[in-house]
Structures are given as C-alpha cells and as structure tokens.
Design a protein around this nucleic acid. Structure first.
Lengths: 199, 199
DNA sequence: GAGATATTACACAGATCTGTTTAATTGGCA
DNA sequence: TGCCAATTAAACAGATCTGTGTAATATCTC
C-alpha cells in the first residue's frame, strides 16, 4: 500500500529522506536536484513526488530529520549520571568530535535558514524548534548546576556552540581546544561560589 | 575605455558589484541569477560578462568586497584611543547593532562558505582571509590588554562572535545582551590580576 | 492464479540558468 | 563633424530545474 501519514515502515520514504539528507547536508538545497535524489535513493521520481508533493516538503522533512538526529546523537554522548556542568561539556565534546578532522560542512540547521530567505518556509519553524531544543537542554543543565542565570548562560553557550561550527566550516578543521576552555570559563563564572569549578 | 585591471573609476563595475552584493547577501548565490543582477545594476548582460567572465568571478569579488566592507565598518565603530579590552567590546557592539532589530541574514562570509562546497573555489580563500583578519584584530587587542593567551582568547571571541550571528539569523532577532556579558567574562578570565576587569 | 495497487521508465511542459552571438546604438574625443 | 570603442537589446544555444502524463511492469492481497 502507498505510504500513508504516520506509516513508519515506508521503505521508499526512508531511502528518499536518507539520500536527501546526505546531499542537502553536503551541498545545500539549490545545488541538489530532485532527479539526483531519486536516482540515488533509488526510487523513481514519480514515487518521490508521491511521498513529497514538492521539493519544499522534502526540504522541511530534511530539516526535521537532521535536527532530531543530531539532538539524539548529542544526547547519546551525554552521560545522564554525570553532574550537569559535566553534561554540558560532554555535549560540547560531541560537537567537537563532529568536526574531526576536516570535512565538516557547518551546522545544517543554520545553513538551512541561511539558504531559505522566506521566513514563512515551513522548514524555518522546524529549524527554530531544533535550536530551542538545544537551548532548553543547556538551560536545564545550567539550572541544575545552580547557575546564577540559567537563561543567560544557555544563550551564551549556544552562541559559542554554533560559532564553533562556523569556525570549523570556514577553516575546514577540527574545533580547537579553546572551545572547551571557553565553555568552562562561561559555566564557572555562573556556578555558586561553594561549588566545585570545572577545570 | 573598457574597464581595465585596477581601474577604480569603472562605474559599471561598481554598480554590478553593489547590486550583486545586495542580492547575494539577502538570497545567496544559487537563488540569484546573473540576469537579475544586470537588470538592476542597470547594465547589459554583455557588459557584466565583460567585467566578470563567469558568475564565480563575480561571487569571488562579492566575498572580497563584503569582507572588506564589514571589516572597515567594524573598525569605524572602534575607538582607537580606548583601552584594548574596550575596543574588543566595541567590535561586539558593532555586530550586535548589525542585527537590529530583525532581518539580519547571518554572516555573509560564513554563508558563502556554506553555499560553496568546492574547497578550491576562489571565494573560499577570500573568506578565510577575512576571518583571519578579524581573528588577528582580536588577537592584537588581547595581546595589548595583557591576556594570558592572546591566541586562545582570540579564537574564543571569534567563535562567540560568529555564533551570535547564527543566533540572530535563526531567530530573526537582535543579538541579546548575554552576548556582551559572555565577551566580558572571557576577556576578564584572561586579564592580569592587577588590571581593571570589564564590567 | 486474478485483480488491484504501487512502482517503474520515459517523455514532456514550461521555466530558468549561464554564457554567447549579432547588429544597432550610444558616447567620448579629435 | 566623424571616427572608434563601448554599450545596448534581443535572440539564441544548451543545459538544468520542478513537476506531470502515460503506459508498461512489478508487487501484494485475496
């Protein structure tokens, strides 16, 4: 039967999204045509358009998927039993490892927003949702760690986080150790005086 | 006479680059055709191709121009008589003001690298040159301020800097005050104990 | 095995893209 | 005025793009 809404066993759909993810991630939306995705899926173009009526629908699904995948991957790198400040650092180390040693193409969510000037594009909201999810994680950990202003610290951390992505993208090199040092400095500046600072 | 190399009075060339800058900046390279640039310059397509044999040449010129323009604009916002740590903050305030109150499209240099997967594209080196210029500014100021490790601090600052751009891009909102607070925290953490900390 | 459904290959429409060709026209300068 | 280089408009080539129409083939269910 043709893939219905909520069908989690639609193999064609899965293959389409997987290939689209690889190609969009590496080259962006404009540079990747629908034909190339369907050829590599492999699936006929007709089937692709059966699952995704327009390319923009596929782009939106890509943004949703890569956001969820990245968040899950990051969470997998975080030890739930570690102290909250350590958990933040583990997330930072995860990002650093994503950029090893070269070939990193920048944050796919940020890149998507950059390539979609139309603020009403459905993918734009999904991109924001993802960043809010990451921001929420930082905020929750900051609060648990006893940060003086968890919202402020979370904003600072996500700016540092995404800036490190840009750094790696432009230089095509691994995020440097100064990245983790900066995270520690920002966190320590907000920890209560009686707590053990990160070092 | 037809615009020669080094001709600084080539009005057609100037108009082409100016329009290309507006359009590329707002929409990216893929979404902007050469026809649209020439129509708006206004200049015939023939003249455009006389000045820039390929679109990639125009893209490279755009990256060079926007990098230089932004760096100059940032330097104009920096008071040469202020202490070095203050000069860094003035540069950060400049970036914050670039994102007011919305409509910011992210760092054009980072966006250019994201949209040009080919690492040998001439614009890629120009993008790196620009970021090295900004990094060098931060390093010089950090060193003048007596930072413990000026290279490390400069890396941290440029990561925070570009991350704030991404933050503003994704959220279509002004960079928040926590940005400046983070810069101060990172700077203060490296200033000599006997110096006056930023507040 | 029969019938319904899904997928395939492939041509096609219509739009757009980069870059070129051609011929008419403009504008500066002697 | 008259020359000459530069610019213009416009059509064009050839490629690519998104999305559709069609008819044959494969797959699944009963």
């Amino acid at each position: 039967m043709l893939g219905r809404v909520g069908d989690t066993t639609d193999k064609a759909r899965t293959r389409i999204v997987r290939r689209a993810t690889e190609l969009f991630r590496a080259e962006g939306f404009g540079a990747v045509g629908v034909d190339r995705i369907s050829d590599l899926a492999p699936v006929s173009k007709r089937t692709l358009y059966q699952r995704f009526p327009t390319k923009d629908d596929l782009i939106a699904e890509y943004v949703r998927t890569i956001g969820d995948t990245n968040y899950d991957s990051m969470q997998d790198a975080v030890d739930d039993d570690a102290p909250p400040a350590e958990r933040i650092l583990q997330a930072f180390i995860w990002l650093q490892n994503q950029t090893t040693p070269s070939g990193y193409r920048g944050c796919p969510i940020v890149n998507a927003v950059a390539e979609l000037p139309d603020a009403t594009h459905p993918a734009r909201q999904l991109a924001l949702d993802h960043k809010d999810q990451v921001l929420g994680f930082f905020r929750d950990q900051a609060a648990s760690a006893g940060a003086a202003d968890p919202d402020e610290l979370a904003e600072q951390l996500i700016m540092l986080f995404d800036g490190a992505s840009s750094y790696s993208l432009v230089r095509d090199s691994r995020i440097p150790p100064s990245f983790l040092a900066a995270a520690k400095t920002l966190i320590n500046a907000q920890l209560p005086p009686d707590s053990q600072p990160l070092k």
